[in-house]
Every structure is written in C-alpha cells, then in structure tokens.
C-alpha cells in the first residue's frame, strides 16, 4: 500500500467537540510528492483538519487514511514518528538549545550521538541557520523568523515522507516571509516531500501549492490546482483573488 500514489485521504470525515460540529463531510486526498494547501479564514477548521492526520485528535465520523491504513488502526506514537509537524506558532522546547530541539526526533528514534550531530548541522544549514552561530542558542535567543526555520528543520530531521505545516510563516514581516517561502519551496522540491500546508494567505497558497483546498465553516468548498482556483467562479475564491489583485 505504501507504494500507492495516495499518502493521505479523508473519507467523509466529521469532527465535533462537545456537540459542536467543527468539520463536516470532508473528503480529501494528498498524492505522493504533492503540496496540498489548506486555505481558509480564521476558524474555518484548517488546524483541526491537520491534527486529524497525525491523530492529535480523532475523527467523530468517517476515517482518515495515512499510507492506506486508517489512523485509528495503528499506534499513534508510531504514526506520529513518521510525520513531520510544524506548529502554528512556537512549539520549540524552551529548555533545549537549537541543536537539541532539532536533534530530538532522532534521539527518540535511538540514533547515536555522532549521527545526530552531523544530521542536525546538515538540517540547520538547509534552513539557513549557521550551525556555528546558532546550534547552542536557546529559542528565546532567536528571532521569530529563526525560530520558524528551526521548527521546519526539526520537522525534517528524521526524514519523514509526510510534512504537516500549520502557518509556519504566520507572524513574520512580509520580506522575511517571502524569503522563507522561496527557501521552503526549494527544500520541498529538492527533497521531494509530500506536504500539507495550512495558510490563510492566498499568495503563499498559489506559490507553494500543487493543489489548493479552500475551506469554509468546516467544509471543503473547492479542491483544485492554483490555475483552476484562479478561474473559479466561487464567491469566496473571488474574494481571495481580489486581495492579491490589489
């Protein structure tokens, strides 16, 4: 099954908390090597959708398949170790240095120290952080942009097939953001990862996405390529497009 083209798929997934429906009838699939962008307004259910994939939360109805098997049928810890995840904000461990943070997934996997050290340096280089300068720093000694890079490096270090990113470049100024988007596009291309990427920024969605899923009030209202999105007659899609046309 793992050879199949589809890495993630949602089948009629609904999710509710305390009787309140947060997701309703979600059907999605993510093919190997593609970057699916979840786009939508604040509160529409993007983060919730993402967390269903690595089973930080469990579906109320329907099922989520990863590599062909239901997430509910495998051990959650095993599942998560094969998936890189970057939180919406923060998520770095404040009591660990940059190097310790990035190396942690490998430490959990029981890799030896020397291998971890080399791999951490490699990852820091990849996300544009000079290991000499940054390896020994604590998160609070880094800028917001540097912390985001570190989060990406940590998600990549164990070489997972699947990467989940929740607005990784959220709280950044426009220039830094643009630079990071470019670098991230390059990294994903080089490494050939499968990515689910959450954003509410259309520009980012168009730049990074091989396909875009537009969400509204807990439903997926559009699913297609950026080109198809640009041509969509949907009012919500038009509203987004107008923000960039300005």
């Amino acid at each position: 099954m793992s050879e199949s083209r589809t890495i993630v798929s949602f089948r009629d997934v609904a999710f509710e908390v305390a009787g309140v429906r947060i997701l309703e009838g979600v059907n999605l699939s993510v093919a190997r090597g593609e970057t699916l962008v979840l786009l939508g307004e604040s509160g529409c259910g993007k983060t919730t959708t993402l967390k269903l994939i690595n089973r930080l939360i469990e579906p109320t109805e329907g099922e989520v398949l990863v590599n062909g098997g239901s997430t509910m049928a495998v051990d959650a810890v095993e599942l998560r170790r094969g998936i890189g995840y970057v939180l919406q904000e923060g998520g770095l461990f404040p009591h660990m240095t940059a190097a310790e943070n990035v190396g942690l997934p490998l430490r959990l996997a029981g890799r030896d120290r020397a291998l971890i050290e080399g791999r951490v340096a490699e990852m820091l280089e990849l996300v544009g952080l000079d290991p000499e300068r940054f390896a020994a720093r604590f998160p609070h000694e880094l800028s917001g942009g540097q912390r985001q890079r570190l989060g990406v490096a940590r998600a990549l270090v164990a070489d997972p097939d699947l990467l989940l990113l929740d607005e990784p470049f959220g709280a950044l100024d426009a220039l830094t953001r643009a630079a990071l988007q470019q670098e991230f596009a390059r990294i994903v291309r080089e490494l050939g990862k499968t990515v689910v990427f959450v954003t509410h920024d259309l520009h980012e969605a168009m730049l990074l996405g091989s396909r875009i899923a537009l969400m509204d009030k807990g439903r997926v209202v559009f699913l297609g390529t950026p080109e198809e999105f640009a041509a969509s007659p949907l009012p919500l899609a038009r509203a987004y497009l107008e923000t960039v046309a300005l």
């Binding site: 690595n54 930080l56 998560r80 995840y85 998520g91 461990f93």
Partner: peptide, 10 residues
C-alpha cells in the same frame, strides 16, 4: 503548545 509539539513528535 509545548505539550502538543511533544505529542506530535511521537
């Protein structure tokens, strides 16, 4: 968030 990051890491 810290706890979530720990869980998400497996």
């Amino acid at each position: 968030k810290i706890r979530e990051a720990a869980d998400a890491m497996g």
